[in-house]
């Protein structure tokens, strides 16, 4: 019962790491309500970001039938980057200004990719990937240009591109985040409800269609939901890499390919991985005073596990 054990392990890890996240920090183990209050939003953001990134990665890998797909391939993170760069340039950086701009950028990129991918009223998986890559490149170049124009905020844009969960929250921002998170869970739930169709989509399109799966509608739905979910994550936490790419593979290795297990499993595993990375980051910063980019740590964790799985698979 490898699967059951897997769930237990993930839940235990999630609970354990969450407690650790509340107990661990420069202030040490403390019951100070202020310190705890400042740790909770960070914990929520980390769990949310890690979980959603991994879940979307799994859904997109299933949809596009490509194990090398990363959730940013559909262009929404680059779009969010443009949004953030614009907000910095225009000076609209109120507490919720940046998330709104980032999300708007992500949605804009989504529209662009979808429009480009449509050929004769249909979208195909390949055209989505190609359009996503094209839009990513264009958006990245645009971000570069904006970075040059907004010299003082260079560090901020670069930092955004790296992703970070060390975000300071005001009550307003927290409410906006919680609201977005709730909506995101609704969207994720919708994705999950498509588990069987996603399973079936992993065979030829004709077979899938003949089994009653509306591949066009499914493609559009998964694509749109994924883009929106990524938009929310990137709006608050920046572009954290690796989680979306690596975690689904780990989860499939543990639970098999059924999306009914892979989607929620990826959420848990993604949250766990990001939490672990964030804790390491915090510990490292406390010990050395150097702040590492979050994506570096996730890579350090994720890549060895990924390589191990690949070797097991190919053996």
């Amino acid at each position: 019962m490898r699967a059951k054990l897997g769930w237990v392990v993930l839940l235990v890890l999630l609970a354990g790491l969450s407690l650790l996240a509340l107990a661990f920090g420069p202030a040490g183990l403390t019951l100070d309500s202020q310190i705890l209050a400042s740790r909770v939003p960070r914990l929520l953001l980390t769990v949310f970001a890690g979980g959603i990134l991994a879940l979307v990665g799994a859904a997109l890998q299933g949809l596009l039938q490509n194990p090398l797909v990363d959730p940013y391939i559909i262009g929404s993170s680059s779009g969010a980057g443009v949004g953030v760069a614009l907000s910095l340039l225009l000076g609209w950086t109120s507490v919720i200004g940046r998330p709104i701009f980032a999300f708007a950028g992500a949605v804009g990129a989504l529209f662009l990719v979808y429009t480009m991918a449509r050929m004769r009223g249909k979208v195909s998986r390949l055209s989505l990937i190609l359009a996503g890559v094209a839009v990513s490149f264009v958006a990245s170049s645009l971000v570069m240009v904006l970075m040059v124009l907004s010299r003082e905020q260079l560090a901020q844009i670069i930092y955004f591109l790296m992703g970070s969960t060390k975000v300071v929250f005001t009550p307003t921002k927290l409410w906006v985040f919680v609201g977005s998170a709730v909506l995101s869970f609704a969207a994720a739930g919708r994705l999950l409800s498509r588990w069987r169709s996603l399973d079936i989509l992993s065979t030829n399109i004709e077979a899938a269609e003949s089994l009653g799966v509306d591949t066009q509608r499914l493609t559009t739905e998964v694509f749109v939901l994924s883009a929106l979910l990524i938009g929310v994550v990137v709006a608050f936490a920046g572009a954290i890499s690796f989680i979306g790419l690596v975690v689904p593979h780990i989860v499939r290795f543990m639970f098999g390919p059924r999306h009914l297990r892979v989607l929620p499993g990826s959420f848990l595993a993604g949250a766990v991985l990001l939490l672990a990375s964030d804790l390491c980051l915090r510990g490292f910063a406390m010990a050395t005073g150097v702040d590492l980019p979050l994506s570096v740590v996730t890579a350090l964790f994720g890549v060895p596990v990924f390589l191990y799985i690949m070797r097991r698979r190919l053996a």
Partner: peptide, 9 residues
């Protein structure tokens, strides 16, 4: 340096 907000606390 980039800092951890908790350090300020």
């Amino acid at each position: 340096p980039v800092i951890d907000p908790e350090e300020v606390l």
